[in-house]
Write a protein that binds this DNA or RNA. Sequence first.
DNA 1: GTCATATTTGGCTAAATTGCCAAGCAGCAC
DNA 2: GTGCTGCTTGGCAATTTAGCCAAATATGAC
Lengths: 111, 111
Amino acid sequence: MKEHMDEKTQARYQARAQIVKAMAHPTRLFIVDELSNHGERCVCELTEMIGTDMSTVSRHLSVLKEAGLVQDDKRSQMVYYRLRVNCILKFFACITSVIADNAERQEKLLL
Amino acid sequence: MKEHMDEKTQARYQARAQIVKAMAHPTRLFIVDELSNHGERCVCELTEMIGTDMSTVSRHLSVLKEAGLVQDDKRSQMVYYRLRVNCILKFFACITSVIADNAERQEKLLL
DNA sequence: GTCATATTTGGCTAAATTGCCAAGCAGCAC
DNA sequence: GTGCTGCTTGGCAATTTAGCCAAATATGAC
């Protein structure tokens, strides 16, 4: 990416990639899914569900927050996270269709 | 992710993450966008547009292919790639809305 | 004030990703 | 066959990411 794509175009795809990257992890996808279903969760609840270190979950949440996908809300000791965007569900629908398509293709190859 | 989420759930998010990961790169997002607009492109065309090493582009394409997002078609010396899925456009719409939202928020903070 | 809980952050190591070059392979022209 | 073009793959170094522990911070209960 050094000469043919101008800087603006580069920057645009860079910005897009940052958003996609923020979701490119199983734990973060789970969090996004859970928040889209339940609306709001504190770090401790998510940690409990995921079953890993709280520090790790917190780091994942900060990645999502940095990308502008979630926002946090501190109430007493707990920090509650929720989605900032509502189009994320379409992501899952699309991803699921890709997975289904891959599975179907896989099956055909086995016949 | 060791005890609270069962293996099936884990595997499901793992599979989803693999798909998202495949798009989590500026160059690969560009390729996906270009293919969704133009339908079909050979490696050399994409290399020309991106302006990087052909081996690098080829690697990116293999990542997309591995995830089931594109398929290739060899005709004479050239290999043409095209999208396997058509819901990808919704991705961009959603991502763009996140970026717009982030920018707006950024602006508010500066006031 | 002390103590406990909820969360974030620093530091570190292990693993994955990226990009380049060189080498290999396939198809076409001759 | 040789040579050329388009593409892929091996290998390697540099960067990024992930996950854990320990330490720091904040809030509430007492």
